[in-house]
């Protein structure tokens, strides 16, 4: 990993994961809720704001508009960010398990 990124919010992390396949807003919300077993329910305004920022950063891109429901997909840059985040989360996880002896 050449470049360091600050930690992502839970919402952004899950949105990026959801966009490994092309999805529209509603699809993102549904998948994230499913992946987190109902724990993470993203608000429409939150998803909209995240999509706008992620588009600006070119971590995701919009697919050709086929009418109302615009679909988005993750870019190579976005994938790198996710990979970096997974390494960071693994570090957190491993250290946690090591120190608590996996009692959690």
């Amino acid at each position: 990993m050449t470049k360091e990124y600050p930690p992502l919010t839970e919402g952004v992390y899950y949105i990026l994961l959801a966009l490994f396949e092309a999805r529209h807003g509603y699809g993102i919300m549904q998948l994230v809720e499913e992946m987190s077993k109902g724990r993470v329910r993203l608000g429409a305004g939150t998803i909209y704001g995240a999509i706008k920022t992620l588009l600006e950063r070119q971590w995701i891109e919009a697919l050709e508009d086929d009418g109302r429901k615009k679909e988005y997909i993750i870019t190579e840059n976005g994938k790198k960010v996710v990979e970096y985040e997974i390494l960071r989360l693994r570090e957190l996880f491993d250290n946690g398990i090591r120190i608590t002896n996996g009692k959690a």
Binding site: T9, E10, G43, T46, A50
Partner: peptide, 16 residues
Amino acid sequence: DGDFELFSDAPSKIQY
């Protein structure tokens, strides 16, 4: 459809 909130996390709530 379940609970309905426009903003679900602190950063987006603060922004709003």
